[in-house]
Amino acid sequence: MSVLFPDGASAGDVVVFWILAAMVAFFAVFTITRKNPVTAVMSLVATFFGLAAMYATLSAHFLAVLQVLVYAGAITVLFIFVVMILNREEVTPLSFRPLRVLGVLAGVYLFVKFVDVVAVGMPTVVPATPSDTFGTVAAVGDLLFRDFLYPFEAISILLLVAIVGGVVISRSHQKEVAANLAADYRKQVHELASHDYPGAAEEPAPEGHH
């Protein structure tokens, strides 16, 4: 029993933790086992919310809000868009190929080892509740703009690059393909015109574009 109810934790904390933990775990498993992608996205959102709540209980207020805004907000919307574009259901969602199952089992082994080794030796004291200003926007912002300014700017540039990259990748290639074809054709015509006839050179075989 002392596993579920560790010493030093208030009952409310414990209950909230277990409910949230169950929710997160359940919805995570739900996500990866759904046939319908929309359902998967929805349960993913639920996972995110659960995590956000958990962050709040951990006094990470800024991050909790960020989780909802960015993850449950922007990223989920992205996923929904793409799901709408390519909505296909699968017949058998999970593919149990031997090597992959082995991989999963390896992961399980690592987990078991982790619990066995680390959990055994770790102190099971409930950490002290941090101060009210811990994890607030001001506090985190202070750190971000002072000690971690460089990573902050770097990640901004990364986001910029990602935007550009996303746009580039999803451009329509139709115009480009047409332009290439036109260029090839013009080259052929030019070569034919510059050879002396009759029978001076063979016609260049038209090249298929790859």
Partner: peptide
């Protein structure tokens, strides 16, 4: 996915 599976196996 096969690569990742091998990765996990390797780590284990």
């Amino acid at each position: 996915q096969r690569y990742m599976a091998v990765f996990a196996l390797g780590a284990a």
